[in-house]
Design a protein around this nucleic acid. Sequence first.
DNA 1: CCGTTTATATTCCGCTTGAGAATAAGGCGG
DNA 2: CCGCCTTATTCTCAAGCGGAATATAAACGG
Lengths: 319, 319
Amino acid sequence: MDQTKGLRKHRANATTNKVKADLIAVVVAVNEIGPCVLTIAKGPALPSGPFELAHRSLQSGLRAWVELQTGQPLGYIEQLYTFADRDRIDANERVISISYLALTRQEDAGASGQPSWASWYDYFPWEDHRSGTPRMMLEELRPRLLEWAGNADDGATRFDRQRRAAVAFGFDDRPWNEDLTLQRYELLYEAALVEEATGDPNAAPTASASGKAMVADHRRILATGIARLRSKIKYRPVVFELMRPTFTLLQLQRAVEALAGRLINKPNFRRLVEQQELVEETGETSLDTGGRPAKLYRFRHAVLDERAAAGTKLPVMRP
Amino acid sequence: MDQTKGLRKHRANATTNKVKADLIAVVVAVNEIGPCVLTIAKGPALPSGPFELAHRSLQSGLRAWVELQTGQPLGYIEQLYTFADRDRIDANERVISISYLALTRQEDAGASGQPSWASWYDYFPWEDHRSGTPRMMLEELRPRLLEWAGNADDGATRFDRQRRAAVAFGFDDRPWNEDLTLQRYELLYEAALVEEATGDPNAAPTASASGKAMVADHRRILATGIARLRSKIKYRPVVFELMRPTFTLLQLQRAVEALAGRLINKPNFRRLVEQQELVEETGETSLDTGGRPAKLYRFRHAVLDERAAAGTKLPVMRP
DNA sequence: CCGTTTATATTCCGCTTGAGAATAAGGCGG
DNA sequence: CCGCCTTATTCTCAAGCGGAATATAAACGG
């Protein structure tokens, strides 16, 4: 097989192997309730639509679909993942899905459309550790995962499944890692503990003990978005895309806690924010906190240019 | 505009908006010379080919094309980015490119094919800081970037361009950040200091003072791959995909240095590797080091399961 | 005026990290 | 055989950072 053959084939098939490209969005906002995801009113599904000739770019196509389906304008957008749907392998049609994470403020919604927001913990109840480890995780998920591990044929697989579950969920005194949202969902899928894994893929999704289901693989895409966001807030100032123009430090902390799904040490969080110079005082204070008034801050947009988030962990030598 | 209309449109256009999907690979290996990228022999281009109906998945399609064009089997693969080619907007054809990063060992090459490897610093000479800051960066790039900044219409833009160049390249006593490979290339592109930005996109690329050019946007994709790899080696043990089964700690360090493009403090690097338990001794030693024999190590594959690379940087509370 | 509530500031300690020096174990030439 | 050169391996030490708890400030309501 020489490579000339490969190149010839490349050209010959150029016109026959077309695919349909779908754009799909995980749109996140934070309100009093907590972290929310934008769904289309028709059902438990993420906004999506095909990439069309009229779209100037992938992102503008996504913006158009989301705004058309929900009336919500998008701010920050970043690509998540592209995959070829395995469920839809027809003889002559292939579908590619390009998923995105978008951050927005809920009040940005325009007049048109009827955005419907849902707490993302409705879909992943085991992901919220702000009030301690969720009961259902220890009382339902854990025994069912152990049962699944025990069902394996050979001992090696049993041991492996147990270890994977323990790492993902923090069993056996392992630490909880909020970034592993996707691995956890995939593990539950593999163990057939989420509805999508068992039922007819075309059946209407319902709520179950292990969280609300969504159509097709939308819940998996949502898990990807949550995982990406949870790890990203640690090294990039993206939280501010979700905040109002001015805010108190506690409001900022609550937003981060809502996303991360766990509580944060207050003084240390303030120290972190201040020494990174992420915010500046507006000079005003907020009285509706109940106690002493809190200073209001705004995001220092300059940090987006100034710093490039120096990478860590490699003991490089200084010149 | 209600959403019903959006959904109707969705269905109606489902069959008319097909696109061609290209798979494109940044295949990396490390040899005595340094970090290498796999190119097709026909010219300065990355291996690529269309996603076809016959391919079981995007990744398997990529594997097939790379092996067909270069004879190189691929190990580790991860997705980089998906984009719609702006250069090729015909009336009726849209092309989507899905790019991948692949890691392999050079000796893994089979009999067929004729892989051609090139040091990636041939394409990005300003990225190699292992022997100090490259001359060409300070003597050629810097003055030309400053000139470009000075050419801006208004003072604000001039200042902004200068700052961006300083952040990306570490001018004015700012630290060098090896992870910014993509930003640096994009800046040079914007300043028209790389050949792809100026010449006819269909002209044959040549070498210039600012590194070898590649066809279309392949050099940009390569920059994306380098940036991803440089940041990934800091929190995931992917270097081992590029190493021989057994190696000395200095060989491992040299590989990381080749990728990162900068030197590493030896004792601290050893401490890092050991305390993370990434490797285990084979019991043998290597005599061909010139001085005292070095212990040989192998990668502890178990770490891939054990640890999930705990995220840092958020002052979470412990229960 | 005092207690309650929340915001903000300060302190302390242990661990990691950056940087350099010291020691070990081969080969080689005299 | 001995001293020297080269590279490998280990040790030390101080500065900085992160985790946790405590102390002070400013509003409100009785």
